[in-house]
Amino acid sequence: MSVIPCCQNAELRKKIEEFAETLKTEAHKLGDHGLDDQEFYNSGLFRGAIERVRGQFSATMRDKREFVKHVLNYMQDGGYIADWESAGEANRHDYAVKLNSGKTAVIELKGCLDGNNTNIFERPPHAQEFIIWSVCTNPGADPRHNAWSGIHTRLSAEIIYREQRVDGVVIWDMVCGTLGRPCPKLENQPERTTEVGPYSLPPACIYVMPATTPSPRNNSHPPAQKLDDVELLNAFHKCFGGDDAEVSYVDFEVAYQGSETVRTTTITRHGAIAQQSGATAIRRS
């Protein structure tokens, strides 16, 4: 087992790398720029075009928000949540969800979890549940690297250092179950997809975290909560056909080693350790 069931599509990754190399050597033949190959590569035109395309892909949240809107509307229509609203630009978090119990859950939307933006979050005072939702739209990204980087390297450090409780993580988006990111959950059961607007979605990857923040002196190894105790995660699980054996439970054990605070991250799935770190010092970037 590993931190997440899916893995990078090696064939697609190889094609991406090969095409990138082709672009670097053949790009001067594209378009009507009137430059020879040396002038083209010295002019900055190629680099500028690459950066522009990269920015256009990464800067907009529109597609991600459209995906989230479809998902939350589907959950509300199905009776899995009572209501939801976008939190607006004035707030650090992205969505507030009214649960069927009357509690308020807050969602912070993130990208692929491997960047410094993952470290930037603040649990609002009114949140009775606080969830990080990773929507990674890059089919060439490595989901195992990103999930471990996000949960162990970044989130655990912030949870412990800043005492910011996170009740769970959802790693799930419109690329899941596609050629770019095949989903093992569908390998023998392709009927497990749910049609949500234009998307055909496999069950979500859900990570349940402790109900308290770890502290070396007073709370060195809090256990993960039960899925039933985090109502929004349970709603995702039930609405989209999750299997209890696929839910991941995360705990952090913290201790002092000399002058440093270290943590050990353990992810358990179906009663077995899926991935575990060594005792790693907290170094925030």
Rank of each mutant, 00 (worst) to 15 (best):
H70G: 07
G140N: 08
N234G: 01
P210M: 11
K15V: 09
Y161F: 12
R165L: 14
A96Y: 01
T268M: 15
R62L: 12
E191W: 14
K29A: 06
I81P: 00
K185H: 13
C183W: 05
H152I: 02
F46G: 12
Q189M: 01
R165A: 12
H28I: 00
L12K: 15
T60F: 13
T22L: 13
L30C: 03
P184G: 04
T118P: 00
H93L: 05
V208G: 09
V68Q: 10
W133F: 12
T153F: 10
A255N: 01
V196R: 11
R54W: 08
K98Q: 09
N218Y: 15
V247M: 03
H126V: 04
H93R: 11
M75A: 01
G177Y: 10
H145N: 09
W133H: 13
T212R: 02
L99P: 01
R52F: 13
A90Y: 15
N9W: 10
D229F: 08
G140V: 02
R47L: 13
D37R: 14
A82K: 00
M75G: 00
L35W: 02
C239E: 02
A235F: 04
F236H: 08
S156D: 15
R154W: 06
F67H: 05
F46I: 05
A272Y: 10
H28G: 04
A90W: 05
E85Y: 05
E158F: 01
P214I: 08
T212F: 02
C112F: 15
A27Q: 09
G258V: 00
A59G: 11
C112E: 11
D32E: 13
E195I: 06
